[in-house]
Computed example of a mutant assay.
Amino acid sequence: MKIELGEWPVSGNAEGLAGTELAIEARGLVKRFDGFTAVDGVDISVPKGSIYGILGPNGAGKTTTLRMLLGIIDPDEGYRRVLGHERPTEVARRIGYLPEERGLYPAMKAYEAIGFLAALRGVPLKEGRRRGRELLEEHGLGYAADRQIRQMSKGMAQQVQLLGTLVHQPDLVVFDEPFSGLDALNQGKLERMIRALAERGTTVIFSTHVIAHAERLCDQVAIIAGGKVPFAGPVDVARDRLRPQVRLETRAQDGPWRAVLPADARHEGAFWYFTLPEIGVEPLLRALIEGDAGILSLSIERAGLHDAFVAIAGEAAARALEESAGETR
């Protein structure tokens, strides 16, 4: 008999932030453009040192939300506090920002471009260029330090701009769709970089329409659809909105044990599939054993973030998310 419990659900507290020092706090953010409400009452709390994802389809309001948090645009309603300041521009030098629309001067060499971005954040130009060479070497691009941006592939230029976002050693890093345009290898490198930043105590917030990145990286997420945030909190809490699913294989095809299976149990091939009952796994196992079901295997799988997204944001938002991901493949 094989029994796999997999990831067992843990109880979570969606509020769970009492006493936590926040890098970003926003309440009731609203932004309208020509009568259209792009962001409608967004609340976000980002703990210091965490990796926080804003997950939603294209057009959901992710970029507008990030720009309000950074002070690039002001909200029509609500307030935000970033690194303890109500005016985010006052702490701009402590923030690294990679916008969705990338842009570097094509005639600049790679190390010069990084040095220039560092200078915009208060680092002396000579020091910024030195750091630029150092970062390029550290990330396997040392051979391209003296290459002009126009001579680089799109992916390589994107990596240069990414390093320029980090060169001034910010306390808070904000990425807008950072994985777009990167191949699988460079996406993996970026994921490792984001984890390394968090391990050093840097707060990272990024927007994405790809659930896999959010699920692998994020401590917390804000699910956004139609300018609203129906959920913001720990990934575990989002997943625990749904009961775990059970896959059961038995030797016996029928018997008194069938009575203990939940109403949603369905038989497909050699397996039974159903939602884990509220009573838990132990009474279920006991009933199966006493009923001579002959358990061959039993596995319990926690709901994934995709299923949680569907449950929280709805089928239409989930379809839009999948379409957004398809557009960038």
Rank of each mutant, 00 (worst) to 15 (best):
D183K: 13
Q148Y: 12
L162W: 11
M108T: 12
S153T: 05
L162T: 07
R133H: 14
M108V: 10
A119H: 04
A110C: 13
H139D: 11
L172E: 02
Q158F: 05
L141E: 14
E134D: 12
P124N: 05
G132I: 03
L136F: 09
L136H: 12
L135N: 05
G188L: 15
Q159L: 03
G181H: 05
R129K: 07
Q187G: 15
S180T: 09
K109S: 04
V167L: 08
L190T: 00
L117C: 03
Q169M: 06
E112S: 06
K109C: 10
R129M: 01
V123R: 02
E138N: 14
L185C: 12
A145I: 12
Q161G: 09
D183W: 05
I149G: 04
G164W: 10
L120N: 07
E112N: 08
E137D: 15
Q159D: 00
D183I: 06
G155V: 02
L136Y: 12
M156I: 10
H139M: 14
Q159E: 03
F175N: 00
D183T: 01
I114C: 13
H168L: 15
L163R: 05
P178Q: 09
R147F: 10
Q161N: 02
E191T: 09
F179W: 08
Q159K: 12
L117K: 03
R150K: 15
L135R: 11
R129H: 00
R131A: 12
E191P: 06
G140K: 15
E127D: 11
P124Q: 03
M108F: 13
L185S: 12
A118W: 13
L162Q: 05
E127F: 04
R129V: 06
L117F: 08
M152S: 03
Q161W: 01
G155R: 13
G181D: 11
A184D: 09
K154M: 03
V167P: 02
E137K: 15
D146A: 14
G128F: 08
D183P: 07
R130L: 14
R147K: 15
R147H: 14
G115M: 00
V174P: 01
E137F: 11
D146C: 11
P170D: 11
Q187Y: 10
L135S: 05
R130Y: 08
H168W: 09
S153K: 00
L163K: 11
Q159C: 00
L117E: 00
R129Y: 02
R130V: 07
G132Q: 01
Q158W: 04
